Amino acid sequence: MKLVLVQGDITEQSVDAIVNAANSSLMGGGGVDGAIHRRGGPEILEECRALRASRYGRGLPVGAAVATTAGRLPARWVIHTVGPVYSRSEDRSHLLASCYAESLHVADSLGASAVAFPAVSTGIYRWPMEDAARIALQAVRQAGSRVTEVRFVLFSPAAYAVFERALEELG
C-alpha cells in the first residue's frame, strides 16, 4: 500500500472514496463533515437519512464506518466514520484506530483502490495532532486492506508537517 501526504482540500480529491470525519447523526456538521456535505450536495444527506431510518437509528457508533454516494464530489463514495472525542483521563486510541481500519474495511467491500483520509478527531474533537498522526499511520499500515493508495489530506501546513514527521519516524 502506498501512503501519500497531500496538503489541501479533501473535497477536491479524485479518488475512489473520501473519508468523512462525521458526527454520529450523519446529518452533516462543521469542519470536514460540513465541507463534504456542502460540496457533495443533497444526495449524500439523502442517503445518510436513509441509513438513520434503517440501520443506524441511534446514530453511527464511534469507530464504525459506513458508505454513501459522493454526490457531486470527484470521488465515487464517501465513507463516514465517527472519531472519538479526545480525553486525558481515558485512553480512546483504539477507537481512533478503528475509524481508519473500519473505513478501509468498507473501502475493500466497495472495491475501492484509492482512499483519501482527513486527520480524524483533530478538529473540534481536540485530539492532539502528533498522537493522531501516529495512530492513523499505524492503523492504516496494520489494516491488511486491499486498497493500493491511502492519501492523507491535511488542510494546514502545520498538520502536513506533523504527518510528514510521523511518517518518517515510522519508516
Rank of each mutant, 00 (worst) to 15 (best):
S14N: 13
V120A: 14
R76F: 05
L104V: 06
C99I: 05
A116L: 13
V78S: 05
V85T: 11
V140Q: 11
Y100H: 07
D91G: 04
A101I: 11
D16I: 00
D33L: 13
V120Q: 14
L167I: 00
K2R: 15
E90F: 14
R52I: 14
E168G: 13
G28V: 11
S113L: 12
F152K: 10
Y160V: 01
L73G: 04
A114E: 13
A133I: 09
H80D: 07
R92V: 15
E47H: 10
E12N: 08
T69E: 05
L3Y: 02
T68W: 05
A67K: 01
T122S: 09
R151D: 04
L96R: 14
A22F: 04
I18N: 01
G144N: 05
S24H: 13
E43F: 01
T11D: 01
D91H: 07
N23R: 07
A50P: 03
D9E: 04
V4T: 15
A67C: 03
A132D: 10
P118N: 05
I18V: 15
L104T: 03
C99D: 08
C99N: 14
L104F: 07
A64T: 00
R55D: 12
W77N: 09
W127N: 09
E43Q: 09
G40C: 08
G171D: 10
C48K: 11
F163P: 00
V162T: 15
R72I: 01
R165M: 01
R146C: 07
Y56A: 10
F152C: 10
G71I: 07
G63R: 02
R141E: 10
T11C: 09
T81P: 02
V85I: 14
V19K: 01
V32H: 03
G123C: 05
L110A: 06
Q13P: 01
S145R: 04
A143R: 08
L170F: 01
F155T: 05
G63D: 06
S93P: 02
L170E: 15
A143F: 04
E12V: 13
F155G: 01
S156R: 14
A112I: 11
S156Q: 11
L96M: 12
A50L: 15
E90R: 15
V4P: 00
V66I: 15
T148M: 06
S25L: 07
P61T: 00
C48N: 12
A53H: 08
A116F: 10
G28C: 13
A50E: 15
A158I: 08
R72Y: 09
G111C: 11
M27F: 04
L45V: 07
L3P: 01
V6E: 11
G83I: 08
G171T: 06
D131N: 09
M27V: 00
A21D: 06
A22P: 03
L3W: 00
Q138R: 15
Y86D: 00
H80E: 05
V106G: 11
R39N: 12
A112W: 13
V153E: 05
V140D: 07
H80Y: 10
A22M: 03
H105D: 13
I36E: 07
V162A: 13
Q142S: 15
H80S: 07
P61N: 01
D91A: 09
I36A: 10
A64N: 10
A116Q: 11
A143W: 02
G8Q: 04
I44N: 04
F163Q: 09
R38D: 14
D33G: 11
A132W: 04
S98Y: 03
